[in-house]
Computed example of a mutant assay.
Amino acid sequence: MAQVTLKADTGRPLGSRPSRRLRLEGQVPAVVYGQGEKPAHVAVNHHDLMLALHTDAGVNVVVNLEVDGGSAVPTLVRLIDKHPYKSLIRHVDFVRVSLTETIEAEVSIHFVGSPIGVKEGGVLVPARNSVQVEALPTEVPDAYELDVSALAINDQLRVSDLPVFANVTILDDPEELLVSVAVPAAEPEPEPEAEEGVEEGEAAEGAEAGTEPTEREPSEA
């Protein structure tokens, strides 16, 4: 897993107004907690934070926070508050971690290749796009790549088919379905419509049959 270094400054005033002022200055209000230590309210540079979160590791990147120029503290991003429609981060939570203790993390799955079954008319149907793993913070995989090229129609791949990384334990059920190639659902055929001329002819015949007089036997006097 990638590691990045990010500078953080303490002493920021708390409250919504000071936080808005920080954002206008290109800073992001943040809090650092965990490992039995008191939470620290800090501010980090928005541009540097965005760069830190856009490595291959995504949010699983180990962020070494240099608080007030001190020694780097290893952390992970735990909560990000994003602006509803702008590409801005409004607040972020960092949790302190020990590089010698395992953590649980969610790792993305990337399906690569073009399945044989899709070329034959099937449809690739992903069932999951991530798995939970346990590993040291620096050994969590950036992502799993799963080759689906050999999948024919009705073939499946499960958690047990994922690549194996040393010192990484996948916590999900090995038999859980990840992806399959299915036969596309057949579209229902439209019901045939009766021809207008036939319907009118049948109606006319019915009318004639209904008006035809019936022959009655003469009654006995």
Rank of each mutant, 00 (worst) to 15 (best):
D147Y: 12
S114L: 15
Q156A: 13
A166R: 13
A105K: 14
E220R: 06
E176C: 11
V181T: 14
A52M: 03
E196D: 09
T75W: 02
G197R: 12
D48L: 08
E120F: 05
I153D: 09
P39Q: 09
G210T: 04
P13I: 00
K7F: 06
A150S: 14
P163D: 00
T211C: 00
V4Y: 11
H46F: 05
E120D: 15
E195S: 05
E101P: 00
V140S: 12
S149H: 11
V97Y: 07
L53H: 07
V107K: 07
G36I: 11
G113S: 12
G197W: 10
V164Q: 12
I89Y: 13
G15W: 09
G121Y: 08
S149T: 10
V62Q: 00
G197H: 07
R12E: 09
Y85L: 06
D81M: 15
V28K: 10
V95Q: 03
E66K: 07
E200W: 06
T138P: 02
P84R: 02
I103V: 14
V125I: 15
E176R: 15
L14I: 07
P192E: 06
I170G: 02
L51V: 14
L171W: 11
P213H: 11
A30P: 04
T100K: 11
V44P: 15
L79H: 08
G58K: 11
E191M: 09
P29A: 02
V123C: 02
Q35P: 05
V32D: 07
P192K: 00
V148E: 14
V97W: 07
E134Q: 15
V118F: 11
I170C: 08
V181Q: 04
P218I: 12
A72F: 05
S108Q: 15
H47R: 14
R17C: 00
A8K: 08
P213A: 10
R90A: 06
A57W: 01
E200G: 00
D147S: 07
P163A: 03
A207E: 13
V159E: 02
T55R: 02
E200N: 01
T169V: 08
G117W: 05
L49F: 03
P84H: 01
P126L: 08
L49V: 07
H46A: 05
E200Y: 09
P163M: 08
G36Q: 15
V95D: 03
L88M: 06
L162Y: 13
V67Y: 01
Y33C: 01
T138M: 13
P218E: 04
H110K: 14
T100M: 09
P163S: 06
L22D: 01
V61N: 07
A57L: 06
A209T: 01
D173G: 07
A185F: 10
P190A: 12
P184G: 03
A203D: 09
K82H: 11
E101G: 06
T75Q: 00
P184F: 00
A152Q: 13
P192N: 01
P174S: 11
T169F: 04
K7Q: 13
P18G: 04
N167Q: 05
E189W: 10
Q132I: 05
M1K: 13
D81W: 09
T102R: 15
V73S: 04
P174G: 12
V61C: 02
V92W: 10
E202P: 01
A2C: 05
P126D: 05
D155M: 10
E145I: 11
A204E: 14
A221N: 02
D161P: 13
Y33M: 08
N64P: 12
